[in-house]
C-alpha cells in the first residue's frame, strides 16, 4: 500500500497506470488541470479500490504554484513513496518552425515544468532516502527527426536531466525511471489515422510502467520492441537520415 503522487493524472497513459495502483490498494493524490475529468477519475479509482484519492487542480504551466502543489500533496497523504509525471503536449511541428513562442510553450510544458516540479520532489526523496521518481518521456527524445524535432528536443532534454538526476539520487536509494513509450493510442495521437500495428494500448504501456517501477528499473522502452527499434535508429548514420523523410 504505497502513497503515490500522479502529476498530469488525466493523461490516458497515467489513468491506465493508476488504475492498477488503485486495485493494489495504494493511496493517491492526483494533479491535473481539468476539474471535471479529475472528479470522474477520482470516483473511478475509489470504486476500483483505492482507500484514499485526493485531487489538486492546477495548470502545470503555472510554475509559481509548483512548490505549493508538492507541499499540499505531501500533507494530504502524510508522506509520499513515489511520483509519476505524465503531462505533456505534442505540438504541430510546422507551426513551431515558424513561431518561436510555440517552441517555447513545448519546452515549458514538456521539460521546464518537470524540472520545476522535480526540484523540490528530488530533495524530498533524497532527504527521505527512499522513493521513486517516474517520468513519461518518449522514444522521440533519443534522436532528432525532421518531422518532430521540437517535441523530440523537449523529451531529449528531459532524458538528459533525468539521467543526471538518477546518478545523483542513486546513493540515497531513490530510483529515477525514464519511461520511453513508442506510439500509444491516446488523446494525444487521436489525429493520427489509421493506427498502424505499432500503436499500443495505454493498458499495455501501463503494465510495463508498473512493473518497471516495482523492479526499480532506470530506463523503460515500452512496448518492449521499441528498445530494438531505437537501437537501430540510434546507430543510423546522419547521411542516411538526411536523405530519408522520417
Amino acid at each position: 500500500m504505497r502513497k503515490m503522487l500522479i502529476i498530469g493524472a488525466t493523461s490516458d497513459i497515467a489513468q491506465a497506470t493508476v488504475r492498477l495502483w488503485a486495485k493494489a490498494g495504494d493511496s493517491l493524490v492526483l494533479v491535473a488541470r481539468n476539474p471535471e475529468k479529475l472528479n470522474i477519475l477520482q470516483a473511478d479509482l475509489k470504486a476500483r479500490g483505492a482507500p484514499v484519492v485526493e485531487t489538486i487542480t492546477a495548470d502545470l504551466n503555472d510554475f509559481d504554484r509548483h512548490e505549493a502543489i508538492i507541499q499540499t500533496a505531501i500533507t494530504k497523504l502524510g508522506e509520499l513513496d513515489g511520483v509519476l509525471v505524465a503531462h505533456g503536449i505534442l505540438p504541430d511541428q510546422k507551426q513551431c518552425e515558424n513561431d518561436y513562442s510555440a517552441c517555447e510553450a513545448v519546452f515549458r510544458t514538456n521539460f521546464l515544468s518537470v524540472v520545476s516540479l522535480l526540484t523540490p520532489l528530488a530533495n524530498y526523496f533524497e532527504a527521505k532516502r527512499q522513493g521513486v521518481i517516474a517520468v513519461i518521456s518518449s522514444v522521440a527524445g533519443d534522436r532528432g527527426r525532421r518531422v518532430n524535432y521540437i517535441y523530440g528536443a523537449s523529451k531529449g532534454g528531459l532524458n538528459t536531466y533525468l539521467e543526471g538526476l538518477r546518478y545523483r539520487l542513486a546513493p540515497a536509494g531513490v530510483t529515477v525511471l525514464t519511461i520511453k513509450p513508442g506510439f500509444v493510442d491516446t488523446a494525444m495521437t487521436a489525429h493520427r489515422k489509421p493506427k498502424g500495428f505499432l500503436f499500443a494500448a495505454p493498458e499495455t504501456v501501463a503494465k510495463d510502467i508498473d512493473r518497471a517501477i516495482r523492479t526499480k528499473k532506470g530506463t523503460l522502452y515500452t512496448p518492449w520492441f521499441w528498445w530494438w527499434i531505437l537501437l537501430v535508429v540510434r546507430h543510423t548514420p546522419e547521411f542516411i537520415l538526411k536523405k530519408i523523410n522520417v
Binding site: 470522474i40 477519475l41 470516483a43 473511478d44 470504486a47 476500483r48
Partner: peptide, 15 residues
C-alpha cells in the same frame, strides 16, 4: 470506461 459510484452495501453501480 470509468466507474462513477460503487455502493457495495446497497448493490448499486453507476458507470
Amino acid at each position: 470506461d470509468h466507474y462513477l459510484l460503487f455502493d457495495a452495501e446497497q448493490g448499486i453501480l453507476r458507470c
